[in-house]
Design a protein around this nucleic acid. Structure first.
Length: 556
RNA sequence: CGGGGCGUAGCGCAGUCUGGCUAGCGCACCUGCCUUGGGAGCAGGGGGUCGGAGGUUCAAAUCCUCUCGCCCCGACCA
């Protein structure tokens, strides 16, 4: 491909709206343009990268026996009503009516439609297992699109769905996908982790996410490098650092105007970990007092799993329900439900005295108050691994893929059943597995860039090689450039030739920005000796090679 | 949806507080000359409903009201 003929609108300056590195570089290097919030145009270079990624996805999907299909993006409401998700999902679903007034929606995922198909076409255990996948557009009316192509309202997704006769079959399909995903992300040149994740609205018991570490990511994962424990902080369990307790006597202490843990902590000159933080929330079944250690944060989602949906209590409510102003509430003598973090089971603590401007020192959990004990704190960097006791670290990550064991959540309501060997009707067991190609591209950039621009992993670069004929007015340069272009292309190597009549500096800057892994530089002086330079984008290291040996030096 | 910021040429910005000549700068773009190993130089040129609507005023990019859009933080997130 010739640069002069291709739409590659590079930008010298950083666009004001972009913040994430991948977003800035995709815009600057001419890979994407934004149409509106969360809607992106993929320009020729960007589209080539996605095509490369999709090719890897297809290969690895076919390798585990998955079959590609194409699904409608416009769905009738009825199917989503049958699984309950028409009502369960809120504003995130794009809804519309057709001309007859029939309710429709735009597909945000395809469990319903895939299951509908399975329910009609799968009859017998002989038809199983099946795995179907597609690489298509999904639409979600995201509350907050952000970070370029990382969170958009319309995006391409590779989603596959497995249909098995029983749990063992599902386990096998799940493992196959997990292994395929490892190969895919490895081939795409990404650093990534497989972590336990919250099945959430998808239902089902087991789920894992594939996470590419990057500061642009929206997720945090807890990782133990000793035993390999890896989990999204949404569900990660951890043991906060142990502390030494003093043998305090139970005593009330006057703490005028000291309300927060921090205030009381510095007032009493005691570290926050010696405090019990009491947080009042209002659940659907009434108020609940949640307790975590002073240096910990309450994990809303973990609490939700125990007490259901809830909201923080307002200041007036605290006073009405507990009879004391927030800031002086403590766990003792409470008549309402109390849920405490397991960290607090042992030790002697300080907490509110349930009396204005007083705290209590020397509180012994289980002696001075009782509670339901659960892990309800957020795992933090430096906590201990709950499995092996070693130090956990927290890393920010981009979710690039996920795998879910769905079980029968969709097959039951949509009546996806089959007859087994004995003629008994059984429900199909399902799994679903997603990958976001644009997120792979963005993660690859986040993980591979320098001050000059993108450094693509070879496998997903838009081209293999960029030829830089520095002086387009020099006949010899053009002649050799054309020859190299032809030779390399013939070998199946994808070549971009910067045939623009630009100064050398411009070509170098653009080439580095665009990030094609290998540059072949044609300078007049070198050409006089029959030499060109082969330069590695990542290392910036260059070697001189004879013109006729270039093709042999470049591996396709 | 809550909080914050921004909207002036393709891109990046100044001008707005304190209203006043033809709305400016850099880059990009077009023409010519020159130049050719890291975003050159000189000369000339084109390009603007100042996000939109309404209002105040002799006069509005600038003040007021409403509205739309985009970004960031949070909530939310198959």
């Amino acid at each position: 491909m010739r640069f002069s003929k291709m739409l590659i609108p590079t930008l010298r300056e950083v666009p004001a709206d972009a913040e994430a590195i991948s977003h800035i570089l995709m815009l600057r290097a001419g890979y994407v343009r934004q149409l509106a919030a969360g809607l992106y145009i993929f320009l020729p270079l960007g589209w080539r990268v996605l095509a490369k990624i999709n090719a890897v996805l297809k290969q690895e999907m076919e390798a585990i026996g998955a079959q590609e299909v194409s699904m409608p993006i416009l769905h009738p409401a009825e199917i989503w009503q049958q699984t309950g998700r028409w009502d369960a999902i809120g504003d995130e679903m794009f809804r519309l009516k057709d001309r007859t007034g029939r309710d429709m929606c735009l597909g945000m995922t395809h469990e319903e439609i895939m299951t509908w198909l399975a329910s009609r076409e799968i009859r017998s255990y002989r038809d199983l297992p099946q795995t179907w996948y597609q690489i298509q557009t999904k639409l979600r009316d995201e509350a907050r699109p952000k970070s370029g192509v990382l969170r958009t309202r319309e995006f391409i997704m590779k989603d596959s769905y497995s249909f098995d006769a029983d749990e063992n079959g599902l386990e096998k399909s799940y493992q196959l996908h997990g292994e395929a995903y490892h190969r895919i992300f490895k081939r795409c040149g990404l650093k990534f982790y497989q972590v336990e994740s919250d099945p959430g609205m998808m239902g089902g018991a087991t789920a894992h996410e594939f996470m590419a570490p990057s500061p642009a990511g929206e997720d945090e994962v807890a990782l133990c490098s000793i035993c390999g424990y890896a989990a999204n902080v949404e569900l990660a369990i951890s043991v906060p650092p142990e502390i030494k307790f003093e043998d305090w006597q139970f005593e009330e202490i006057h703490t005028p105007e000291k309300r927060t843990v921090q205030e009381v902590s510095s007032f009493l000159k005691l570290k926050p970990e010696y405090f019990i933080k009491s947080i009042l929330v209002i659940s659907e079944n009434g108020p609940v007092l949640a307790l975590v250690r002073g240096d910990q944060e309450l994990h809303e989602k973990k609490l939700t799993k125990i007490i259901g949906t809830h909201r923080p209590a307002q200041k007036i409510e605290v006073k009405e329900i507990l009879g004391v102003e927030a800031g002086f509430i403590g766990p003792m003598n409470q008549k309402i439900r109390v849920v405490a973090d397991t960290t607090l089971k042992e030790g002697i603590y300080v907490s509110g005295a349930n009396k204005p401007h007083y705290h209590v020192k020397g509180i012994k959990p289980r002696r001075d108050f009782n509670a339901e004990w659960h892990d309800i704190h957020i795992a933090k960097d430096g906590d201990r691994c709950a499995k092996c006791g070693n130090r956990l670290r927290i890393e920010q990550c981009i979710e690039i893929g996920n795998i879910f064991k769905l079980g029968t959540k969709y097959s039951i309501p949509l009546k996806a059943v089959y007859l087994d060997e004995n003629g008994n009707e059984k429900v199909i067991i399902m799994g679903s597995y997603g990958i976001g190609p644009a997120r792979i591209a963005a993660a690859a950039i986040e993980q591979n860039n320098d001050k000059d621009g993108i450094i693509w992993p070879k496998s997903i670069a838009p081209f293999d090689v960029e030829i830089l004929p520095l002086n387009m007015k020099d006949a010899k340069t053009i002649e050799i450039a054309e020859k190299l272009y032809k030779d390399l292309t013939k070998k199946g190597i994808e070549v971009l030739m910067d045939d623009r009549d630009e100064r050398a500096g411009v070509k170098f800057k653009d080439a580095d920005l665009i990030g094609i892994p290998t540059q072949i530089i044609l300078g007049e002086k070198n050409l006089k000796e029959g030499l060109v330079e082969i330069k590695d984008r990542r290392t910036k290291g260059a070697v001189k090679a004879k013109v006729e040996e270039v093709a042999a030096n470049i591996k396709s």
